[in-house]
Simulated assay, not measured.
Amino acid sequence: MKKYFVTYLRNFDYLLFFTYIFLCLFGLVMIYSAGMMVGIMYEDGTPDYFYRKQLLNLSIGAVVFCLGAFFPYKHYSSKPVMMAGMLIMIILLLWVKVNGTGLDETGSQSWIRLFGMSFQPSEFAKLFIILYLGGSFYKKSLKYSSIQHVTPNDIINPILIWLFILAGVGTETDLGAFIILFFIAISVVWLSGIKGKSLAKFFVVLGGVGGLLSAVLLIFKYDTIFNGSRAGRLQAWSNPFEYAGGSGYQVINGYLAIGQGGLEGVGLGQSTQKLGYLPEPQNDFIMAIIAEELGIMGVAIVLIGIGLIVLRSFYIAMTTKDPLARMIAGGIGSWIGFQTFINLGGVSGLIPLTGVTLPFISYGGTSIMMLSLAMGILLNVSMYYKRDKKKLS
């Protein structure tokens, strides 16, 4: 054990660690600033309501970060760990079906409330699908001595598990999580190293099954999927100013916040849009408040920080010799990068709003906890990567 910790510290990835810490602390400050009026008006009457809750979330996140950082990533491909993760995932999905909440508030029944706390299974699913698919493909590569010899028939079981999870999240009508889970799986499969006809056959089958699943969801869940809130978001995306008094209200006030910030911003804590104009500014629209208070420089700080994590993940994935490390690092990078794109795309009007949070910055307990665990795992992968790189040099 002592030897392991010495090796770990010698190969510690300080860039990843301090970037993660900085983004979390920066997000904590902005949550306090963005959420103070909402805390006073709608919660417990204190301006630091969301700050205190996020501080608790980050404390729990620090614990799971350490667990992920010191647990050897190779163990995620072991059968007991994979089965335990799958069992937890199935229980969570079934639980949210029977006793889930959130339909009235968010339009999707995707939350579990337990002992006064809320948990979102779809956030757990994002990390689980990376580890489960990566572990499954890695075991197949060991069986055949090369992942290139794996056929679609060999990976049918993990794909069925993924489709089950996708169907579970889809029937919650959590479209943002549904889209992210779809592209995470595509990224992991692409990074697995499967080549040629096997990869082509896989995507053909996946496209067919995915299309069928989407059609079934649309037939049986059309009214829920395209409820008033989501239909309004589509309208707001096409022309928010035409629906300024309704579905376009949040988008337009987001634009106003961004426009008022300019280059330098109006100053930390000085936003006017958070004073009851921009709904839930501490959540998926927190970047609009950052732009208003800190200007383009504040936005650039966030994008550079997240960009460093994503690029570091992809660098490890593209240069490592270990297929499991490649799939885990690339999967985590794809998750963070794609979720950031969806959030910023919604805030800027590039794509319709989905209610997806900005990684590390937005308020949210389940999100920051699972991202912290993912960063711990990525740090562990990086440690082994740096160690192996030194041995080869």
Rank of each mutant, 00 (worst) to 15 (best):
R10P: 09
L16Q: 00
L25C: 04
L28K: 01
M30N: 13
Y32I: 07
M41T: 07
L56E: 11
G61E: 03
V81P: 00
M83A: 09
M86A: 13
M86N: 12
L92P: 00
L94R: 12
V96F: 09
V98I: 12
T101K: 14
F115D: 11
G116M: 08
G134P: 03
K140N: 03
L142H: 08
K143Q: 15
Y144G: 14
S145T: 13
H149S: 09
V150A: 11
I155H: 03
P158I: 12
I161R: 04
W162T: 11
L166Y: 15
L166A: 06
G170N: 09
T173G: 01
F178H: 09
A185W: 08
S198V: 12
K201Y: 08
V204Y: 10
V205C: 15
G208D: 03
L217T: 06
L218S: 13
I219Q: 13
Y222H: 15
A231W: 07
N239T: 12
N239G: 08
A244I: 15
Y249F: 11
Q250E: 13
V251F: 13
L256K: 15
V266M: 15
P279C: 09
I286F: 01
I289V: 11
A291Q: 03
G295N: 08
V302L: 04
L303E: 07
V310A: 03
V310W: 05
L311F: 13
F314W: 15
D322E: 10
L324K: 06
Q339H: 11
L344C: 12
G346K: 02
V347G: 01
G349T: 14
I351Y: 07
Y363D: 01
S367P: 01
L378N: 01
N380C: 09
N380G: 06
K391F: 14
K391P: 08
